[in-house]
Computed example of a mutant assay.
Amino acid sequence: MSLYLYVSNHFNPVEPDDVVIEKLWELESESDLEIANNYLADAIGSQYYSFLEKKVDCINLKLRRDNHYDIYYLSPNGEIAMISEDRKLPNAFIVVYNFGFVLKQFKEVIYPQLITYNLSPNQVELLKRIYLKK
Rank of each mutant, 00 (worst) to 15 (best):
M1N: 05
M1C: 04
L3V: 08
Y4M: 11
Y4P: 00
Y4N: 11
L5K: 09
V7I: 13
V7F: 13
V7Q: 13
S8N: 15
S8Q: 13
F11S: 07
N12C: 14
P13V: 01
V14P: 00
E15P: 00
P16N: 11
P16V: 04
D18M: 06
V19M: 02
I21S: 05
I21V: 10
E22K: 14
K23G: 05
K23V: 00
K23I: 00
K23W: 00
K23N: 09
E26C: 11
E26S: 15
E28D: 10
E28T: 11
S29E: 12
S29D: 11
S29M: 03
E30K: 07
S31M: 09
E34C: 01
I35P: 00
I35V: 11
I35D: 04
N37G: 11
N37T: 02
Y39E: 14
Y39N: 03
L40F: 03
L40G: 04
A43M: 07
A43N: 06
G45Y: 10
S46V: 05
Q47L: 05
Q47T: 09
S50K: 02
F51H: 09
L52N: 11
E53D: 14
E53I: 14
K55W: 03
V56S: 15
I59Q: 04
I59T: 06
L61R: 03
L61H: 02
R64I: 00
R65G: 07
R65H: 15
R65C: 09
N67D: 14
H68D: 02
H68A: 08
D70V: 09
D70A: 07
Y72L: 10
Y72N: 07
Y72K: 06
Y73I: 11
L74M: 08
S75D: 13
N77G: 11
N77A: 15
A81M: 05
M82I: 14
M82W: 09
M82H: 05
S84G: 13
E85D: 08
E85Y: 06
D86H: 13
K88W: 00
L89F: 01
P90Q: 00
P90M: 01
N91T: 01
V95D: 13
V95M: 09
V96C: 12
Y97H: 09
G100S: 08
G100H: 02
G100Q: 08
G100W: 01
G100M: 08
V102E: 07
V102C: 05
L103E: 04
L103V: 04
K104E: 07
K104M: 14
K104L: 05
K104V: 01
Q105Y: 04
F106I: 07
V109I: 10
I110V: 15
Q113C: 01
Q113M: 07
I115T: 11
T116Y: 02
Y117V: 00
L119Y: 14
L119A: 02
L119N: 02
S120L: 13
N122C: 01
V124R: 11
V124P: 01
V124A: 06
E125K: 09
E125G: 08
L127H: 13
K128N: 14
K128M: 15
I130H: 08
I130A: 10
I130K: 13
L132E: 05
L132D: 06
K133R: 14
